[in-house]
Design a protein around this nucleic acid. Structure first.
Lengths: 256, 256
DNA sequence: TGAATAGTGTCTATAAGACAATATCCC
DNA sequence: GGGATATTGTCTTATAGACACTATTCA
């Protein structure tokens, strides 16, 4: 092989010509959509997936349940906006967050054209005890169990009385997309660990998988597979509770 | 189980209160980012992945290579905008398209705050012969081979002389994200078939997999797996060429 | 000691990888 | 027939699922 020739220094990101153009650039020359973020925060509790919603106290959809979210600041990153709105409206902070999908049908918001970048978050149940409270723009926050309905639809569990909570905008569709994404990624990523505290037992891990996948897994095979993946490290103690104590593990990812 | 009570009719999507509010709603009360779409069109040719780029003839980044894309119309869906801009700038139309990710770092465009919703598309090589041409806003279009560089980076193949084509904005990062996504989804979806014509041989299918995954696959195992998946139907003819002719297949998905 | 859960061992069925044998075409 | 590729068969190895057995704690 011939040795590679020396590479020239990279050109500047903006040229002098560009800078001149930019001075005369008018951002108002096009009609622009508004951009929001919405966040689906999920946890696993007692064999169910749950999502946190806030009750709207401003139009549109006053009184309906919505995902925490809101407008993106002009100098704010998308993930930054998602983190900020989540903290403002629900008090939840310092959690794992990942972009889900961007929903932009022209009719999805009755006010005007609004494109929303949806995120999903997974959080251990314990982290939330006493932490969730209604903040700015939210009249109330609550957890809703996710259930699988007929026709493969995924939605909120019906209340006593049989009616399902009404969701604002296309947020029901966003939640459904998020649940499908999590189910898909569960098997080839390590997102399950985001739903568990720092230390956990293999049975607790298996319960997370069983809840999200909606089926029982064989215990022996599950343990073999998880342990051979080499992403867990034995922790010091055990979890005790009336029976044989269970070894605690910690997620360490590849290596270490 | 108790029989479910009759469910009340769903409430209207917007209430009278909402409508009154909307009459007075001022969309200009917030600073709004601009929103664009960008499209990564990939094909597989001669053992390489290739992406189509257009040379910019307007600032910023005049002369640099960019993904086909542009501003989203105020009443236009995101996918509609992606389809439209792709046709306008490259002449490519009627192809499979899927949303990739939304890039929104505040500094990613020197003009103003621009959030871009990126899409990726897969198209059979044959479909493009003579179809790709530079259109509105593009000085030139060209195909670039994708190569894996040191440190796990994915980028454009260097030209003769050793320099790599300069890409506008954060488009190099978008292309890299798209290639990773395709590599990941190849194994658990049927996107590979989007890269092949209506009828193809199993060897051609295997070559698509080998190109994208960058490794040789065992022929017997590959055939067993693909055929047992039940998504192919034998087509009428064979592909002839100096050797034993190969059976043609057609992708039919589940069932039929 | 018994109930309950943790953890391990074994057998079988299935799938993946390696390798080779056979089949069919064109020249 | 020879070259080249298509297609199938077989053997080995790895993995998943089912099932049962052992281990440990607390009441």
């Amino acid at each position: 092989m011939a040795p590679p020739p020396p590479s020239p220094p990279p050109p500047p990101r903006t040229s002098a010509h560009d800078r001149e153009f930019l001075r005369g650039y008018d951002v108002t020359q096009f009609d622009r959509p508004s951009v929001t973020v919405d966040v689906c925060v999920f946890t696993v509790a007692d064999g169910d997936i749950e999502v946190v919603l806030v009750r709207r106290r401003e139009p549109p959809f006053v009184g309906a349940w919505a995902l925490p979210g809101g407008f993106v600041g002009i100098d704010e990153s998308l993930e930054g906006a998602a983190t900020r709105k989540l903290a403002e409206e629900t008090g939840i902070r310092d959690i794992w967050l990942e972009q889900l999908y961007t929903f932009g049908e022209p009719s999805r918001d009755p006010r005007t054209r609004v494109i929303t970048v949806a995120y999903y978050a997974l959080v251990p149940r314990e982290r939330l005890e006493g932490q969730v409270r209604a903040g700015a723009g939210a009249a109330e926050t609550a957890w809703f169990r996710i259930v699988d309905g007929r026709g493969g639809r995924i939605g909120l569990e019906a209340r006593e009385g049989g009616e399902r909570p009404e969701m604002a905008f296309d947020h029901a569709s966003i939640v459904e997309t998020a649940v499908r994404r999590i189910r898909g990624k569960l098997e080839y990523t390590t997102i399950a660990f985001e739903l568990l505290p720092r230390e956990f037992t293999l049975t607790e891990l298996q319960q997370v998988y069983e809840t999200i996948l909606r089926r029982r897994l064989a215990k022996a095979a599950f343990r073999r597979k998880v342990l051979s993946a080499g992403v867990l490290k034995e922790a010091k103690g055990t979890r005790r509770g009336g029976h044989r104590p269970a070894q605690l593990y910690r997620f360490v990812g590849r290596g270490r």
